[in-house]
Every structure is written in structure tokens, then in C-alpha cells.
């Protein structure tokens, strides 16, 4: 029995005709897709292609001009763009998670690692110090940070550790959908590999769905089940990750794939 069939046969996220303009410029336009439970969707494209705008619109950080972002909440499908703000913020700290490219944007740099991981637990009402501490220790272990670093501040951590801490902080409440903006950007390659492996394991074990924005095709090949290619705010091609990369159909995708330097 597969992980996917154990869950309801409905998309976790249904996006329809999502559009965002900056004045006369197009941020992203007419984006539609379904994300199913357990799936990892990669969004690639060069700088300025609208992939970060799209991610911000999906995660509710930016108000799109039109369209729908329907999420399968515990109370049934709901358009998150038309949700009340309290509901959307609650969603953002329970069922959703957002991993920023720069861990400084996603961490509280003045708060210890344990406090960073525990914040979401406290936000949903956990009031037992011991259990918060245990959960934080457990999660530090899962993201391969030594437990004796629990009372250190992230400013004392390396870039890779900060990024792993950010992931722990986001996943501690067991979200169902994670948005990631260039999660491996700014890390050196050996640290990237470790992070990718970690993310794959977590996605598999927790049945997570994820939307990952990146310009690194090697990252999506290893992480993403499906791929969406964006150019000038439009989705020009989407499909199975390996199919899009190995048999690209759109001229831009062909250019993108052929431009990658081979090691």
C-alpha cells in the first residue's frame, strides 16, 4: 500500500489561474496546478522568471490579483486567498511551513536553538517546558545538530546548521505542506548534499508535500517528483521531473537544460 493511497484521493493544494502584476509588469500569470499529498513540486526558472513571486502568492506572503489557492484543510477544501487573516496565519503555523533561502529570515537569531524549535509548539499552546525541551532535542537530532548545542544561539552556527535548524523549527508541528525558497542556495556543495538527503528523508517519513523554488536543476532532479518551468511569469512546461529534464519540449526548457555545466 503506497503512502499516497493511504491518504484521501484529493489534491492537497489546487491552484487556479493565479496572477500577480507589479503595475504593468507581470509577476506571474495564469498559473494552475494540483499538488497531491506526498508530492514534491519543483519550480525552476532564471532570476526574474516569477518563481519567487509565485511562491510568495501561494504562501500568502503576497496578495495575488486573481485566482484561487485551495488547500485541503482539516475542515475540507478552502480558498486560502479568501480566508480570514487569523485563519490563514493559523494555517501558516500549523499545517504550513516556509523555509527561507536565508536562514536569518526564518530564524530568531537572538533566541537559542531550542527556543527557535519550540516556538511553534508554544504558539499552538504547549505549556510544558520539559516536553518542549524534549521535542526540541528530538528535532535537533533529526536534522543532525548535536543536542548539546540546544542552548546556543543560531548566530554561533554555520550556514548549513542554521538552514537545518530552520527546517527543524518549521517541521516540529508536523505540517503537511512546506514551501521552500532556494533551500540549498548559499550552501557549499557538500552541505547541500547533506541537506538534500535530510529533506528527502523527512518528506518520505512525514508524508510531506513540498513546493521548492530553485534555479538549481541538480537539486530538483534529486528532490522533486514534478517540475514546473517558468519564464517571464508564465509556466512554459510542467511534468515529471526526469521527463522535463531529459526530454524538454519548450524552447526555453531546452535552453535551460543545455546550459547546465556538466561536472
Amino acid at each position: 500500500m503506497s503512502r499516497i493511497e493511504k491518504i484521501t484521493p484529493a489534491p492537497l493544494l489546487s491552484v487556479r489561474n493565479l496572477s500577480k502584476r507589479y503595475g504593468s509588469r507581470i509577476g506571474c500569470t495564469d498559473v494552475s496546478f494540483d499538488l497531491w499529498p506526498g508530492e514534491v513540486l519543483g519550480i525552476v526558472g532564471e532570476s526574474g522568471s516569477g518563481k519567487s513571486t509565485l511562491l510568495s502568492c501561494l504562501a500568502g506572503h503576497l496578495a495575488p490579483d486573481g485566482g484561487e489557492v485551495v488547500f485541503a484543510t482539516v475542515n475540507g477544501p478552502q480558498d486560502t486567498l479568501r480566508m480570514s487573516e487569523p485563519d490563514r496565519r493559523r494555517l501558516a503555523r500549523t499545517d504550513w511551513a516556509f523555509v527561507h533561502q536565508n536562514p536569518r529570515d526564518g530564524l530568531r537569531m537572538g533566541v537559542t536553538a531550542g527556543g527557535n524549535v519550540g516556538e511553534r509548539l508554544m504558539a499552538v499552546g504547549t505549556r510544558n517546558y520539559g516536553s518542549i525541551r524534549d521535542a526540541a532535542t528530538d528535532w535537533l537530532g533529526r536534522v543532525e545538530i548535536d543536542a548539546n548545542r540546544i542552548d546556543d544561539r543560531p548566530s554561533a552556527f554555520s550556514g548549513g546548521m542554521q538552514q537545518r535548524l530552520q527546517i527543524a523549527r518549521n517541521l516540529v508541528t508536523g505540517p503537511r505542506l512546506v514551501f521552500m525558497d532556494e533551500p540549498t542556495g548559499g550552501l557549499d556543495v557538500s552541505v547541500q548534499a547533506r541537506l538534500l538527503d535530510l529533506l528527502r528523508g523527512l518528506v518520505r517519513e512525514m508524508g510531506l508535500s513540498a513546493i521548492i523554488v530553485t534555479h538549481d536543476l541538480a537539486v530538483v532532479r534529486l528532490l522533486a517528483d514534478r517540475l514546473m518551468v517558468m519564464k517571464s511569469g508564465h509556466v512554459v512546461e510542467q511534468g515529471l521531473t526526469d521527463q522535463v529534464l531529459d526530454d524538454p519540449q519548450h524552447p526555453y526548457t531546452q535552453l535551460l537544460v543545455s546550459s547546465v555545466l556538466q561536472v
Binding site: E85, T112, M122
Partner: peptide, 22 residues
């Protein structure tokens, strides 16, 4: 102000957590 209006007070406990941790 938004946190007050939405009763998002988890952060207050983060401060107390930090106290105990330290």
C-alpha cells in the same frame, strides 16, 4: 499589534523558555 489582535502569544513563552534554558 497583529499578534495581540489575533491572540498569537506563543512568543511570550519563548521569552520564558529562554529564561529557563539559560
Amino acid at each position: 499589534r497583529k499578534m495581540h489582535s489575533l491572540e498569537e502569544y506563543g512568543l511570550m513563552h519563548v521569552k520564558l523558555y529562554e529564561d529557563i534554558a539559560r
